[in-house]
């Protein structure tokens, strides 16, 4: 389980996170929802120790993040975390070189599924295909947790469909997925848990199916109640 405990973060005098707390469990898809600037990306960066916190604590399976944790928790940022002059093959080589949890078989499977060839240069890929390679570089690691920052933003509908179908496959199964988005409709059916963030704090935290069952509300209904006042 990823536990984010009361984290705060200041950029200069501006508070980005104001005591954010939530958890994301293994085997579940947890979605952080909030408008741009609500602090979603900062929260993911903080989990990966890519930005310092002003206060608070983050635990992964009860322990603080160490360099070894990067073998078991992967982050897929909203731009591809690889050099654009590399070919897909070189990018995979780079990953294989550094990560013992790199799973080449799964990488090939994903390339096949996305219909991409390894000789292609990252710089020449379309936005949708770049997003797929970015996803592949994270998914081909045998990790317990996968963090994704806005995996659907700015890409075409067919790429979005392909990426969502990865979410319902064995490639995601049994892992803990933490995903941020400001646009829910693509993945409404996929999410286990929803965390609504506004202005650096969690305003609501619920299980999507329970919400539908007990209050007959869609995720969007809840968002409307929370964000439109």
């Amino acid at each position: 389980m990823i536990e984010v405990k009361n984290i705060t973060k200041k950029f200069g005098n501006k508070k980005i996170l104001k005591g954010l707390s939530f958890t994301a469990k293994k085997g579940e898809i947890t979605c952080l929802i909030g408008i741009n600037g609500a602090g979603k990306t900062t929260a993911l960066n903080a989990i990966m120790n890519l930005t310092p916190l002003t206060s608070g604590e983050i635990l992964i399976d009860g322990k603080k993040l160490t360099k070894e944790s990067y073998q078991t928790i992967a982050f897929i940022p909203d731009t591809i975390a690889m050099l654009s002059q590399m070919t897909i093959r070189q990018a995979m080589h780079f990953m294989k070189d550094f990560y013992t949890t790199w799973n080449q078989e799964r990488a090939n499977e994903l390339l096949n599924f996305f219909q991409l060839t390894e000789t292609q240069k990252i710089a020449t890929l379309s936005k949708g295909n770049t997003a797929k390679i970015n996803l592949m570089l994270g998914l081909a690691l045998d990790v317990d947790y996968l963090l994704m920052d806005e995996p659907f933003s700015g890409i075409d509908i067919f790429s979005r469909e392909q990426i969502t179908s990865v979410f319902t496959s064995h490639l995601i199964e049994d892992r803990g997925v933490l995903i941020t988005t400001h646009e829910i409709s693509d993945i409404e059916h996929l999410i286990d848990k929803v965390i609504l963030i506004d202005d650096g704090i969690v305003v609501k935290d619920f299980n999507a199916e329970d919400m539908r069952e007990q209050e007959e509300k869609s995720i969007l209904d809840v968002m409307r109640e929370v964000y439109v006042k």
Partner: peptide, 12 residues
């Protein structure tokens, strides 16, 4: 063009 620093900082 791409934020390669993410990758470098996330190397194990």
């Amino acid at each position: 063009k791409n934020a390669f620093i993410y990758r470098l900082l996330m190397l194990p």
